[in-house]
Amino acid sequence: MSNQINFHPDRSMLVEFSAGTLETALTICVSAHLHFCDQCRSELLSLDQLGSQLMSDAKPSDIDESLLDTVMAKIDEAELAQVNSKGSARVPVNEKPSSFPFSVNKLIESTEHSATWSRLNSSLDIARLKTGQDKFEVALHRLCAGGKAPKHDHQGIEYTVVLKGSLSDERSVYSEGDFLVRQPGDIHQPMGGQNSECICLSALSAPIKLTSPLGFLMKPWLQIRPM
């Protein structure tokens, strides 16, 4: 995957990703970006090297002599169990293109009853994903070619990664792999690219605020439901 990616997660997010201290929902978004971005993946490798260097520099602790035997016994046990239960075949539940990040496809697959699209307006669908955390609503959004999302403000922070196609708003055009951050006060109206539908992954910490006069008619927008 190497198209030109112009928008990357902040470096401190990448450090927290490497150190394993980033929140789950953001870990998912960064992981999706990494799938597309050679540069960030390359920096992540260096950051992981830094982590391993810090680990190796520390003073080693004493280990009980019997621990190796315990571990070997557990390894043998696990291998035996594996031989005895040849895994049952899993049935794919949804459209999961191989161009999607592995982690996103796995989330789609493991969302109960499979992730399903529901309509938000004539050009926009949402499929919420089960992520086992309750701070962010993590979801896929699908915008049809040339379709417009309603103009909105943000009450919390919103992270978006373009997975397929492209979209644009007042600031720029975003294509596959681009990582967007929108904060309260950032009003925008995303629009799908003209040639194909656009699918994005997003994490939203609070409901968006519609800025159009009839916004109140659109109830589904006014709440987030993390799961």
């Binding site: 394993g20 960064v30 992981s31 799938h35 982690s103 989330l107 493991s110 969302t111 089960k130 992520t131």
Partner: peptide, 12 residues
């Protein structure tokens, strides 16, 4: 929890 942490580090 649907995913293990290593799933997020799955590389091409």
């Amino acid at each position: 929890l649907p995913l293990e942490n290593e799933d997020y580090w799955h590389e091409p």
